[in-house]
């Protein structure tokens, strides 16, 4: 999957450890969004016709189209349900997260 990855980050321990100017480079993710989700989208890859509408319309860009089948980055999917709602063949199901 080709998506920005979570970075390890150490909180500055004293005032001298704080950077002057920019605090970090771009593409700096230190926390994930998976905990926001109540429902998780699951793609039925047998039914999927690769129309890529879900990839196009995902506000979070978590659907990766680089492989033969679509892959969802569940670290950053918020479970908004746009993909399932917009999927014309209806092959994305919103499944309730356990716990």
């Amino acid at each position: 999957m080709n998506r920005p990855k979570l970075k390890q980050w150490q909180e500055p321990v004293n005032i001298d450890a704080y950077p002057v100017g920019s605090t970090c480079p771009s593409d700096h993710l230190t926390s994930i969004n998976a905990g926001w989700r109540t429902y998780r989208p699951v793609i039925d890859t047998d039914k999927c016709v690769m129309c890529l509408r879900c990839f196009l319309l995902c506000p979070d860009g978590v659907i990766d189209k680089s492989g033969e089948k679509l892959v969802i980055d569940y670290d950053y999917c918020k479970g908004c349900g746009i993909c399932a709602h917009e999927c014309k063949p209806g092959c994305i199901e919103m499944v309730k997260e356990e716990k």
Binding site: N2, R3, P4, D27, L29, I32, N33, W36, C51, L52, R53, F55, L56, L57, C58, P59, D60, G61, D64, K65, S66, Y76, K78, G79, C80, G81, I82
Partner: peptide, 29 residues
Amino acid sequence: HNARNLTNEEFFYGHKACGGCGESLAVRL
């Protein structure tokens, strides 16, 4: 541009906008 020829690379990713935010989709595209 369409979904097929649009780059798979993301330049706006892992943001904390509410689920289903239309504005973040506009920025992403």
